[in-house]
Write a protein that binds this DNA or RNA. Structure first.
Lengths: 115, 115
DNA sequence: TTTCAATATGTTTTTAAAAGAATATTGATA
DNA sequence: TATCAATATTCTTTTAAAAACATATTGAAA
């Protein structure tokens, strides 16, 4: 039988803009769902999140980010909707890239541990 | 004027033993204070933590860790006390080492980001 | 055998966060 | 100009986590 590791290591990363939390795992998922569905309402329905919370997250992101990440439209055909901006898509991509790099690093370093 | 970075990246790591959270930043601090003060009571007083919570953390750690990290003694001179075991000290050290490595990696990778 | 300070554990209260409910607003379009 | 679905916003309720409180237990030492 193989040697069983005592510990495994988990992590989370966050993007901050100045001192404001800007992006984490949950917010990235929300952005991705907004991109897919075209609205905050439907994005929130897909995850365990109330519209209220999703809307607040979007607002906080837009306020803290250097550029708006979600463009919202109000009224009109379909009642309105929300789309992820280029800046938003870039942020999503950067987050995933960074997270993957850290995951790889941690996996590699974990192997070196004699615990 | 220098270019101002849009984002800075923060992180947290946790040691897991099987599927149980074993060690994080807060628990490491608790262990260090137990080591300094020789008791859960005084360790808890030093941070914003109730004795009850500190005691529970210690128990969870001891239950999930492969080896006990805090040795408790009950009654007797001084009422008893708590000491960090060799395994506990090693865990503290490993945690700091790993955290520092990840911090260094993230700092380096952050520099490469054009955001 | 009483004292004492710390561990051990149960119960209640407070607090903060999330959820939920309710309602108003918007604007294209039919 | 009435409709409609989504955004926007306020208010209330629930829930979960933390804190606070209370009390029992332990065992060396005086």
């Amino acid at each position: 039988m193989s040697i069983k590791k005592k510990y495994n290591i988990r992590f989370r990363i966050w993007f901050y803009a100045n001192e404001d939390k800007f992006l984490g795992k949950g917010r990235v998922e929300l952005l991705e769902r907004i991109k897919e569905t075209g609205s905050i309402t439907n994005a929130a329905k897909g995850m365990k999140m109330s519209y209220r919370q999703a809307w607040q997250m979007v607002n906080e992101m837009n306020e803290s980010a250097p550029k708006i990440v979600v463009e919202k439209s109000l009224g009109g055909k379909g009642g309105g909707g929300a789309t992820v901006t280029k800046a938003g898509e870039k942020a999503i991509q950067q987050f995933h890239e960074f997270e993957n790099k850290v995951a790889q690093f941690i996996a590699d370093e974990s192997k070196k541990l004699k615990i």
